[in-house]
Design a protein around this nucleic acid. Structure first.
Lengths: 144, 144
DNA sequence: TTTAATTCGGATAAATTTGTCCGAATTAAA
DNA sequence: TTTAATTCGGACAAATTTATCCGAATTAAA
């Protein structure tokens, strides 16, 4: 459903959010240990997210990644997915046609439109705060 | 959402079904012209589908691919997807964790479970007959 | 001012997916 | 029986995604 980059990205951002809620920065090493992902590859993903202004990066000793506390509940899952995988999940034909809309639909157009719209809603309605706190309280996990 | 192989596969099978409903076989050339897909690659996909017994292949002059008429309304989209992309769309964690279930969920587990179950239902409830007839009546398209 | 911890960015490599080529096998029809 | 139309299957090639390496830049602290 998502690319590996996006999977790592979402996991990383959730972890960074959790740390940020506790007034702490997360370093790359810290992150990759906590979400069990390849270090160099994850670094690229974090760079992308920093460029997209979803996370903030700080260089130098004691540096790392962080998210402003007050932003955490306004950042939606959809923004992260969008920054890493683009909008092809929502748009684009399920069967790969270049043109596919209500006027000239592919045979599964309507059925896919329904599912995708639900997916879009879900991603747009899920914010980082709830994900980070479920992690903080030990209800959910980022590795295994 | 689906691999290219799966996209071509679904399109091809719908076309083959349409032809089969009209008592005609579809040759590889015929198919790739009609669904606008790369010939050699599509051939591999069709081989996979033939091995999975979803379509029947006939060699020699006037050969091609066909589906028994009486099977067309019992073949579900899910079978095609399963044969080509496996079951990772339904199973498997949305964030790529090896272990992720109700007991040890990832932070998006519940939200994804809902979406995926809808997707599964949709694929399991969509049969080839309806897709092929919507094509036959000119309501839907397989290329562009 | 030096050192060391960190992110940044470019080059490269490995793995996977997508795609091509071509000869072999099959089989209907001339 | 020969020919030609077709699928089959293996080897290969290209493109994309995933992953690694390493030096440069930044910066806090010794």
């Amino acid at each position: 459903m998502f690319s590996k980059a996006c999977e790592y990205g979402i996991r990383a951002v959730i972890y960074i959010a959790q740390k940020s809620l506790n007034e702490e920065r997360a370093s790359l090493k810290d992150i990759t240990a906590e979400i069990d992902s390849p270090e160099a590859f994850t670094a690229k993903v974090l760079q992308q997210l920093a460029k997209a202004k979803i996370i903030n990066s700080v260089k130098g000793p004691n540096g790392g990644f962080e998210i402003k506390k007050e932003d955490i509940d306004s950042i939606k899952l959809s923004e992260i997915v969008n920054a890493l995988d683009g909008d092809s999940i929502y748009k684009g034909c399920g069967l790969g046609l270049k043109v596919c809309n209500a006027n000239e639909p592919c045979p599964v157009h309507d059925k896919f439109t329904t599912i995708r719209s639900e997916l879009r809603k879900m991603l747009e309605n899920t914010n980082l705060f709830e994900l980070a706190t479920s992690l903080e309280t030990g209800l959910t996990y980022l590795k295994r």
